[in-house]
Design a protein around this nucleic acid. Sequence first.
DNA 1: TTGTGACTTATAGTCCGTA
DNA 2: GTACGGACTATAAGTCACA
Lengths: 75, 75
Amino acid sequence: MEGELQRTVGENLRRYRQQRGLSQESFAEALHVHRTYMGSVERGERNLTLQTVERLAQTLGIAPIDLLNKPSEPQ
Amino acid sequence: MEGELQRTVGENLRRYRQQRGLSQESFAEALHVHRTYMGSVERGERNLTLQTVERLAQTLGIAPIDLLNKPSEPQ
DNA sequence: TTGTGACTTATAGTCCGTA
DNA sequence: GTACGGACTATAAGTCACA
């Protein structure tokens, strides 16, 4: 289904953020992106590019694949 | 490293194509994209969006993750 | 604290040549 | 059969005011 990947990435990012007990604002700041941009990414509204996924994963200190995989389907 | 994901996707696509013994032209046609675009994707020059990766994978009949994972590092 | 719409700038996606 | 350049249109990246 179209847009599934971006929704997965959004869910994963939200989970990572909540696990750290952070607000969208402080999380966005840590990732060097704007608060409202991060919010729309978490909601799966943004069709991210591979480089953006890569950059977010790198800043989080995880592998890009960990953002792209559904947690329920750890591939 | 920046651009690693798109290079991986390119390598994977080229491998899939060659396994099928197809030219870039007929492969591109099968994937409903332009010949020259497909070439640059294979070369890792294109920073694809998630929806594009998804669409290509779907047309190939594989999971998006299979395009995103390095074959040498099957995750 | 988070979501929404509108907006500008950068670039993805497409197609045409040429070699 | 493949690579590369230029030109164009669609859309991602990034920001803001307001709810």
